[in-house]
Amino acid sequence: MDSSYLFDPEHWDPGAAGSIPQLLLSHLGYSALALLFGTLIALPVGLFIGHTGRGSFLAINAGNAGRSLPTLGLLMLMVTLLGLGLTPVLIALTVLVIPPVLTSTYAGMRSLDASVVDAARGMGMRPSQVLLRVEFPMALPVLMGGFRSAALQVIATATVAAAVGLGGLGRLLIDGLALNDYSRVLAGAVVVAALAIVLDLLLGLIQRSIVSPGLTGRAVRTRRAAPAP
């Protein structure tokens, strides 16, 4: 395995066009936008379904249905229909974000102890207060799990942007492939995987800091984690 591309300082010069830091930046840009849009769409829908119980069929099945959409096909279709640019890439990646966030929001809401919600109502909370001050914070651990897996998936998949002429770390893969330069492909794989791992650790830290300690088992350690639905 030839790692010369990865360790060549020339490829780490932030000022050079197409250098690894620049590609990293555009990669993060696509991923962050897709996560933002996806969450903005999926979170309210998931909260609504979880709160009201209406449309739960959609929420349960969205996960696997979304996963079954081939991102490359969707992307190429969008480019064919809409033309070049950032929009098709963002659509394809956003579609990837929605299912895990939607499903985990719903699952998080459903996993709540009904008696807690009843107690909140009994205390005279309005429905919106119940949702925002009880249900949402308590659903957060499961929701964050979904968000983290969405983030990982988007980071790995944002590489397809390069297949339709945009930037991102996929450039190292596509250009390496076109030039038959394995060292470059390897560099791409390593940087993407490292990015995913760092991001997952960061999101884990964020999760620890925003989830109420009463829920995480840091107060009372439970032996088994509940299996994912």
Binding site: L173, A196, D200
Partner: peptide, 19 residues
């Protein structure tokens, strides 16, 4: 498993022949 899962598929397809 987490690390393996985060390698982009295209990269894996291309690197495997060498490995």
């Amino acid at each position: 498993c987490g690390i393996l899962y985060s390698i982009p598929s295209l990269a894996l397809f291309v690197i495997l022949p060498v490995v």
